[in-house]
Simulated assay, not measured.
Amino acid sequence: MEEFYKGFAQWARDLAEKADPFTRLRLLDLAQRYDLRSRPGASHGRPPGPRATPPTLLFSRSGEG
């Protein structure tokens, strides 16, 4: 399983080289998370950190209530 995480981390880094600045940061963060998971003895059951959630206004519909 460690090889999978190492490979995925490298894949994310390769994509980050060609990405816009915002996406690059997100991909490098993802690569770092997978690097941590690739280490023997790492906690694989821990959920990833919090994600940014869009404002609820984007999901509300006018006239509902």
Rank of each mutant, 00 (worst) to 15 (best):
D14I: 02
D14Y: 02
H44E: 10
F4M: 11
P55K: 08
T53Q: 15
G45E: 03
D35R: 06
G65D: 13
L15E: 09
S62V: 13
G41L: 07
P47R: 06
P48A: 15
S60K: 14
R33G: 01
A52D: 08
A19P: 08
A52C: 09
L30S: 03
T56E: 14
R46I: 11
E17F: 00
P40N: 12
D35C: 03
R61D: 04
M1P: 04
P47V: 11
G63S: 03
A9S: 12
S60R: 10
E3C: 04
T56D: 11
A9H: 01
S43Y: 10
E17G: 10
Q10C: 04
A31T: 05
A12P: 02
D35N: 11
L30P: 00
L28E: 10
M1L: 10
R33L: 07
A52L: 12
A9Q: 01
P40K: 14
Y34P: 05
S38G: 09
P55E: 05
Q32Y: 09
R26K: 06
R39F: 08
H44C: 10
R39N: 06
P47L: 10
S62L: 14
A52P: 03
E3V: 07
P48F: 12
R51H: 13
H44M: 11
A9M: 03
P50Q: 07
G45H: 03
P47M: 07
F59Y: 11
E2T: 08
R24K: 15
A19Q: 00
T56F: 11
R61L: 13
F22V: 14
L36M: 12
F22D: 13
G63N: 05
A19S: 13
Y34H: 12
E2D: 11
